[in-house]
């Protein structure tokens, strides 16, 4: 799985590279639009992370060139400009996703995985962790072929963890992702705990091989038991 990062900021490039390498991707980097274009012309990548603001030109122009070259790469646009215009233009020019800085690495990972999944499995797509199989299109979860009955919030939480396995998830981020952007700055996260408690109970009862662990003071982490 090869990924190209086109990002001019050295430190950010390095941290993303280190993270993705840990996730067992093969990572190439480019600091400028020229360098990026050269690499794209010579090699092919599963996914390209493209910063829109580059010293030698707008990333959107590069996206246009990519389109002209009839390249099939998945492109995730990264931008410090959380601007809707950029987002719309980027997506219109063929970018597959859009991430506004600052973003979480776990989020980036989930987006990359979702793109790759979308590409690999045409038609029916599912996410599998251990003996749990989740169908995002149908909002259904199966454990060893038996349907698991979840309420809306429990399903959303499970989906979030399934796409970010083995990552520490900050409960504040989880709250924002599941309940919505307006749930931030709350000083008590008991409501998440209540939902996760129920979800855990259901997973345990159905003998799922995944487990959501609480990390004190921070949040949760989903792990898969080796069976």
């Amino acid at each position: 799985m090869k990924i190209l990062i086109i990002e001019d900021e050295h430190s950010l490039r390095e941290v993303i590279q280190r993270f993705l390498e840990k996730e067992r991707y093969v990572v190439e980097v480019a600091a400028t639009s020229q360098e990026g274009l050269r690499k794209i012309a010579m090699y092919s990548y599963e996914c390209i992370l493209l910063d829109i603001m580059l010293p030698d030109g707008n990333g959107l122009a590069l996206l246009q060139q990519l389109k002209n070259m009839h390249k099939q790469e998945n492109v995730i646009v990264i931008s410090a400009k959380d601007s809707i215009d950029d987002k719309v233009e980027g997506l219109e020019l063929g970018a597959d996703d859009y991430l506004a800085k600052p973003f979480h690495l776990a989020e980036l990972n989930a987006r990359i995985k979702s793109l790759i999944r979308r590409n690999q499995q045409q038609g029916e797509s599912s996410i599998v962790q251990g003996n749990v199989k989740l169908f995002p299109d149908k909002y259904e979860v199966y454990i060893e072929n038996s349907l698991l009955d979840l309420n809306r919030k429990e399903y959303d939480i499970l989906l979030y963890f399934m796409t970010r396995p083995n990552h520490l998830i900050d409960k504040a981020i989880l709250a924002e992702a599941v309940w919505g952007d307006h749930i931030d700055q709350v000083d008590n996260y008991d409501f998440i705990y209540a939902q996760i408690k129920n979800l855990r109970k259901k997973l345990k009862k159905a003998e799922a091989s995944i487990e959501i662990k609480a990390i004190y003071g921070f949040g949760y982490k989903m792990t898969t038991e080796d069976k």
């Binding site: 950010l12 941290v15 993303i16 993270f19 800085k101 600052p102 979480h104 690495l105 990552h167």
Partner: peptide, 29 residues
């Protein structure tokens, strides 16, 4: 806007650190 990138770097480095198995509990705190 200019602050977004440095903030992203800080956030991502902390994330790497949090996911690092070598970090002790008190450090994590």
């Amino acid at each position: 806007h200019e602050m977004q990138t440095p903030l992203a770097i800080c956030q991502n480095r902390l994330e790497l650190l949090v996911n690092n198995a070598d970090v002790t509990e008190s450090q994590l705190e």
